[in-house]
């Protein structure tokens, strides 16, 4: 349909983004599950040899592509999830003012969660740039980049005293 009014255009754009983010999430979740959950059962049989291990998460986040991957993942998941919740609310709530309040609340919650997620990602970069003086894994003084290979390949136990 041509010559849509601005409201229709906004609705169509929202719908399209909902579908596009859903399709994107299928791909991103496939990567996420393969890397985090399927690798050695997502858990470590050998200490430190899990993709979910703190050092391994940091190793990935030190790569710009992984950082972008997680930023896009966070944005797509929040948009898709909250767009869906917004649609469900619209189906069941008939009182317009209540619906407007719920929509505003969902928008605020999604923005807050996005900000929290981005803060985690930014913080990870700050930690990589300024690592704690005492390494939590090998308890040797040094930077995270200097010993992250050790952590990734899993030599030594976690919280080794």
């Amino acid at each position: 349909m041509k010559n849509k009014n601005p409201r229709q255009k906004k609705l169509a754009a929202g719908w399209f983004l909902g579908r596009a983010s859903g399709l994107l999430l299928v791909l991103l979740l496939a990567v996420h599950f393969t890397v985090i959950h399927f690798e050695r059962g997502g858990q470590e049989k050998i200490p430190g040899r899990s993709a979910g291990f703190h050092g391994a998460v940091f190793l990935r986040l030190s790569h710009p592509l992984w950082w972008v991957f997680y930023a896009v993942f966070l944005s797509a998941a929040l948009y898709h999830g909250f767009y869906g919740l917004r649609g469900i609310a619209a189906e069941y709530i008939r009182r317009e003012r209540l619906l407007a309040s719920i929509r505003a609340g969902l928008l605020a919650a999604s923005i807050a969660l996005w900000a929290a997620g981005m803060l985690i990602l930014v913080n990870s970069q700050l930690l990589l740039a300024n690592p704690p003086a005492l390494c939590y894994k090998c308890h040797a003084r040094g930077s995270i980049p200097s010993c992250r290979a050790i952590r990734f390949f899993g030599f030594g136990a976690i919280n080794k005293k």
């Binding site: 291990f53 869906g84 919740l85 469900i88 929290a116 985690i120």
Partner: peptide
């Protein structure tokens, strides 16, 4: 869909502890 959308909150809460390696490892 509802469960997965609500799951984002606890997932981000756990990731918040990435800044505290000892607590993150305890959760893991």
């Amino acid at each position: 869909g509802i469960v997965l959308a609500l799951f984002i909150l606890p997932h981000l809460y756990i990731l918040y502890f990435l800044g505290d390696p000892a607590r993150y490892e305890a959760i893991r």
